[in-house]
Amino acid sequence: MSLTARIVSALLAAFVVAIILKLQRRGGLVSKYGLLWMATSAVMLVMAAAPDVVDTVGGWLGVEYTPSLVFMAALGFVLVVLVQYSWELSRSEQRIQILMEEVALLRRELDAQRKDAEPEG
C-alpha cells in the first residue's frame, strides 16, 4: 500500500473517531453505538497503520487476493449492523404505538373524570 493511501485511510479513521466523540459528548449518541463505531474506527486505524495485518490474516485463512477479504468483512459487518437497526427500529415503533394508545386512553379517562367533577348546569 502506498504511503498516500495509508495516510488517507488513517485520516479517515481519525475523522470517524472525532465525529463519534463529538456526538457522544453532545449526548446525541447512546453509548452502545458510540462503542460500536469507536471499535470500528480502531480497526480502520490498525489497518491504515499496519496494512500487512490484512495480508497475514488473509494468509491464515488461505485467501489469495487479500484486499477482497477487507471488502467482504466490511460488507458483512455493515449488513449485520443494518439488520440489527431494522430490528431495533421495529421494536421502537411498537413501543411508541403502545405508549400512544395508553396516552389516548388516559386522556379519555381524565376528560370523563373532569366532566363528572364539574358542577351540574
Binding site: 404505538q97 400512544m100 394508545e101 396516552v103 389516548a104 386512553l105 386522556r107 379519555r108
Partner: peptide, 20 residues
C-alpha cells in the same frame, strides 16, 4: 373520542378502538 397524539394509521387506530 379517543385522540392519538400523532397519526399512526388506520390499523393502529382500530387497535386502540378494540382495546377501549
Amino acid at each position: 373520542v379517543l385522540r392519538l397524539p400523532v397519526n399512526l394509521g388506520y390499523g393502529a387506530a382500530l387497535r386502540l378502538g378494540f382495546r377501549y
